[in-house]
């Protein structure tokens, strides 16, 4: 009976540790369909993302550079801001840097705060066409998910999604210099 108790405790502990390796999902970070540019900003853009980190076996939910890049690419295409993404050579390079990702360590409701730095550079003359720093946050409650790992993952994804949407709105409304 004592062994049964230890096994049960180990099983729960394994579930806890296994759940830690739960990276933010790229599809869940994509901007919604509400953002739509009236006029494309250019023919092509290539996207470079830095400051992210893959989620390790024991890490809390993180944002991998490749996943954020894929989410930004899909969002830009959906918004119609550029004709194509990731084509080289491209007219523009969009640099996205993860500046700050604040995640709670414990609690019932999880609020994640995120700051991303966005910078659009024209490749031909390396001119900075547009740059902005956007802070976003997303809160998930226990009613959305009972498991802390899932709540944290959802909060990270929500903060990224909101950040991308804000960027697309700002860039869509911006008058780029000649």
């Amino acid at each position: 009976m004592a062994r049964l108790g230890i096994l049960a405790a180990c099983a729960v502990l394994l579930a806890l540790l296994g759940g830690c390796a739960s990276p933010a999902d790229r599809a869940a970070m994509e901007a919604g369909p509400v953002v739509r540019a009236q006029v494309p900003k250019g023919d092509s853009v290539q996207i470079t993302v830095s400051g992210g980190q893959a989620t390790g076996a024991l890490d809390p939910s993180s944002i991998a550079d490749a996943d954020l890049k894929a989410a930004v690419e899909a969002s830009i295409l959906k918004a119609g801001l550029f004709g194509s993404v990731s084509r080289i050579p491209a007219d523009y390079t969009l640099y996205v840097r993860i500046i700050e990702l604040q995640r709670p360590l414990m609690g019932g409701n999880f609020t994640v705060k995120l700051e991303l730095a966005w910078q659009l550079i024209r490749v031909s003359d390396q001119k900075i066409m547009f740059r902005t720093s956007i802070r976003s946050s997303h809160r998930t409650t226990m009613s959305e998910s009972f498991a802390a790992v899932t709540r944290l993952k959802m909060a990270v994804e929500g903060a990224v999604k909101e950040n991308i949407e804000t960027f697309l709105k700002e860039l869509s409304a911006a008058q780029l210099p000649d």
């Binding site: 502990l13 806890l16 540790l17 830690c20 360590l105 414990m106």
Partner: peptide
Amino acid sequence: CALTLLNTGC
């Protein structure tokens, strides 16, 4: 263990 699972990160 369940409380830890529900209330903590890693």
